[in-house]
């Protein structure tokens, strides 16, 4: 559905994108992760025809978007990061307006707008002005506004920033529904758990390059960290971190004074840890073994936390 090859973009002396390749299949829900300034938004802006790349090609639904930007736009729906709605218009009027820009018949737009209001659970508030909506409700209409023309591809740029859990769950539910209906979705977010929960495939972008791509499981397997072992000690004061680090390279102490071990093979590592504790008279009060999260993988790959 989306095929981008060797996209380069430079802003003055800053190389924003250094040869991005993307191959996203029809119906796929693809997560694009990266810290601020990594190139996520520039990539989305190029894929959505808002920005022209310096080099490279982009095809969406078989159409060269650089040669056919207007036709391509009809295949694309975009949920911008900011709530881009007219506050003094009602939800329905906003939907009718945004839907009307794509040249579809008015009756079709109205029926689609009502369908969207139902889908997002806002039918009973359709005539309220947007300024009366909560942040979460605005976010829902923000997404609905991108779906009125039945796009084949939906770009979602951090659609759940700063909203209440109820609205967030509703949005997850709708995204799941849209995905199951076969819509291709490119999702950028700061929330790792969203990507883990929603996306089939993830691309991690940093300094204008895709540095890793695959399913969350594939990325985890490729990483040096597949598991996290948390060990709480009854006598943590007796533990010597330097000595521990000689035996286990990837160990650190977290804010709860627990020892955190990152490892590839948790079973093997676990026996080594228990043995070490026993030899050094360190009393284990609890051990917790978890799969490495995307956050851990991201940190390992980029050396940065996602919110940096």
């Amino acid at each position: 559905m989306i095929n981008a090859k060797a996209i380069h973009k430079r802003f003055g002396t800053v190389k924003a994108l250094k040869g991005i390749d993307l191959d996203i299949k029809e119906g796929e829900l693809y997560g694009l992760l990266g810290p601020n300034g990594a190139g996520k938004t520039t990539t989305i802006n190029i894929l959505s025809t808002l920005l022209k790349p310096d080099n490279g090609s982009v095809f969406i639904n078989g159409l060269d978007i650089l040669k056919n930007p207007v036709s391509s736009k009809k295949n694309i729906g975009i949920v911008p990061q900011e709530v881009a709605l007219y506050e003094d218009l009602s939800a329905l009027d906003n939907l009718l307006f945004w839907g009307g820009l794509y040249g579809n018949p008015a009756s079709q737009i109205r029926s689609r707008a009502n369908e969207m209001l139902r889908l997002f659970g806002l039918s009973d508030r359709r005539n309220d002005t947007i300024k009366k909506y909560s942040g979460g409700m605005k976010r829902r209409i923000n997404i609905a506004s991108a779906l009125l023309h039945n796009p084949k591809v939906l770009f979602m740029d951090e659609p759940t920033v700063g909203i209440d859990p109820q609205s967030r769950n509703k949005i997850y539910e709708v995204i799941g529904q849209l995905h199951s209906n076969g819509l291709t979705i490119i999702y950028t977010t700061h929330y790792m758990e969203e990507v883990e929960k929603l996306c089939e495939r993830v691309g991690i972008i940093d300094y204008g390059e895709i540095i890793a791509e695959g399913t969350v499981e594939e990325l985890r397997n490729r990483s040096n960290t597949t598991s996290i072992i948390n060990v709480a000690l009854e006598n943590p004061g007796n533990a010597n971190l330097k000595d521990l680090q000689k035996s286990f390279e990837t160990v650190e102490v977290d804010q709860n004074n627990q020892l955190v071990f990152r490892c590839k093979d948790s079973d093997k590592k676990l026996s080594g840890i228990v043995k070490y504790m026993d030899q050094h008279n360190l009393m284990i009060s609890s051990i917790d073994v978890k799969k490495a999260s995307l956050e851990n993988i991201f940190l390992e790959l980029t050396g940065r936390k996602l919110r940096d």
Binding site: K73, I76, P80, L101, S145
Partner: peptide, 10 residues
């Protein structure tokens, strides 16, 4: 931000 959204349209 609505201008950006308008520019996304055809």
């Amino acid at each position: 931000g609505t201008l950006k959204r308008l520019l996304y349209s055809p």
